[in-house]
Design a protein around this nucleic acid. Structure first.
Ligand code: ZN
Length: 273
DNA sequence: CAATCGACCTGCTGGC
DNA sequence: TGCCAGCAGGTCGATT
């Protein structure tokens, strides 16, 4: 269920343990459906740096060796001092980290995640499918305007979710961004004004950065997204429409829920035009 | 070609 | 309380 802020929080959490030398690899048979590429063994390699583009996390292990990880709806990386005995732990790496001996695990109950263990070429190929990351300098008004020009008849909200166009936005971020720039999710791109486009860039930067500051969003108490040490994200109170009854911007508008491209979509008819 | 829509999985939530 | 349909933060591939 991770969007850009959750993946970034996981990345930052792992940074504290670098370098991570992998001494032993344990895996379940179910990893096979997640692991799309396997060009070498991880045993004996050392994770030296971590990169992120949109919702994709990239591990660098030296000599052009990389791991590309997409979390799907329920996947995440966890660090523990004790062996991680969680039910859906499909890959457990016994490591020596800068903090001592730890276990690095990829846990994914629904197995919608994808992983590639491959050389630079694989990373390059995978990242080529990913559009402009919304946290980069590259993301600006022109990028959005060009997309709108190219897809004039499409509804804005499903378009925001497409990672080949903009990278990092998922369902909650899309709803929140559109609320903050006061644009209804059903609006066709060609009807979005220059002023609204400008505001959408601002809203994207605002919502994404605020969620990152809060270490992402956790919904359910028991399950759902956690950082590498098992802590919940605290962005819940920052939501203004997503899964809300009342709009938190105007304070009294009842939030409407519709379905767009099979995804639950929330907006305030009072605030958003 | 672009756009929509079910399929992939497990587990929580809410209504009866 | 128990059961069970409906739904979930995301892609993909097949089909229109
Ligand atoms: Zn409102």
């Amino acid at each position: 269920m991770p969007e850009l802020p959750e993946v970034e929080t996981v990345r930052k959490g792992l940074l504290d343990f670098l370098p991570l030398k992998i001494n032993k690899v344990e895996r379940t048979p179910e990893l096979a459906s997640i692991l799309k590429t396997e060009e070498f063994s991880l045993k004996g390699l050392t994770i030296s740096s971590l990169e992120r583009k949109g919702k994709v996390l990239i591990f660098h292990l030296g000599n052009g060796k990389t791991v590309v990880s997409r979390f799907g709806m329920a996947g995440s990386w966890e660090v523990s001092e004790e062996k991680n005995k969680k039910k859906h732990n499909h890959l457990q790496l016994h490591c020596t980290s800068s903090q001592g001996a730890v276990f690095l695990s990829y846990v994914d109950a629904r197995r919608f995640g994808k992983m590639h263990i491959g050389y630079q070429e694989v990373t390059k190929r995978e990242l080529a499918k990913v559009g402009v990351d919304v946290t980069t300098e590259e993301f600006n008004e022109k990028v959005l305007r060009d997309i709108f020009k190219k897809y004039p008849d499409r509804q804005i909200k499903p378009l925001l979710l497409e990672q080949e166009k903009l990278a990092g936005i998922g369902n909650y971020l899309a709803c929140e961004i559109l609320a903050h720039c006061k644009v209804r999710p059903t609006r066709r791109c060609k009807t979005i004004t220059k002023e609204e486009t400008k505001k959408m860039v601002w809203a994207t930067k605002k919502v994404v950065s605020e969620s990152i500051e809060k270490n992402g969003l956790t919904f359910t108490k028991t399950t759902g997204y956690r950082d590498v040490l098992g802590n919940a994200g605290e962005f819940f109170d920052g939501l203004v429409v997503f899964r809300q009854k009342l709009c938190k911007m105007c304070g009294d508008g009842p939030v409407k829920k519709i379905v767009l491209a099979t995804r639950g979509t929330f907006y305030c008819p009072q605030c958003q035009k």
